[in-house]
């Protein structure tokens, strides 16, 4: 049950952080991505704030094998930069730049009752299902 509580708490804090920083608003994200136009650098400082805290937490995690709840700490083990990583990230950025939504802000916008966010999230889920299909059927490696 604890794992559910801390998942909920973490999701809640994440959402609050997106709202405080203004990043739940796609318009503000696009104002950052519009680097050749009238540029709002705020998103960069969101990353700075998040990474500053993140550096500490990953430093703590590095010295532990178990979490405070006694669960194994699972960090990604992949270390190769491959085509999937690059191709996938390029595609993600295209979608991000089109609408100003990445997955987190889209969920917060949906929670706030935005119908357009529902359309985006349903389409994103369709994209994730398409990935599962392609991954299982054609791109075995």
């Amino acid at each position: 049950m604890n794992i559910g509580f801390f998942s909920f708490l973490s999701g809640l804090l994440f959402g609050i952080g997106l709202l405080v920083s203004g990043m739940a608003n796609p318009q503000k994200v696009l104002n950052f991505l519009d680097i050749t136009g009238h540029w709002d650098p705020s998103l960069m400082l969101v990353m700075v704030g998040a990474i500053a805290v993140g550096l500490v937490s990953f430093r703590i995690a590095k010295h532990r094998t178990l979490s405070f709840l006694g669960l194994g700490i699972k960090l990604p083990t992949a270390d190769k930069v491959d085509n999937r990583l690059i191709g996938g990230s390029l595609l993600f950025g295209m979608g991000w730049g089109l609408a100003g939504f990445c997955p987190g802000p889209a969920l917060v916008a949906l929670g706030s009752g935005e119908f357009k966010a529902l359309v985006f999230v349903l389409s994103m889920i369709a994209g994730m299902l398409l990935f599962e299909y392609l991954d299982r059927n054609t791109l075995k490696n």
Binding site: P76, A78, R84, L85, I86, G87, G88, S89, L90, L91, F92, G93, M94, G95, W96, L98, A99, F101, C102, P103, A106, V119, F120, V121, L122, S123, M124, I125, A126, G127, M128, L129, L130, F131, E132, L134, D135
Partner: peptide, 13 residues
């Protein structure tokens, strides 16, 4: 955009 974000983030991990 949703499709691109869905497919892209999963392929890109």
């Amino acid at each position: 955009a949703g499709l691109l974000v869905g497919v892209g983030t999963r392929f890109g991990s």
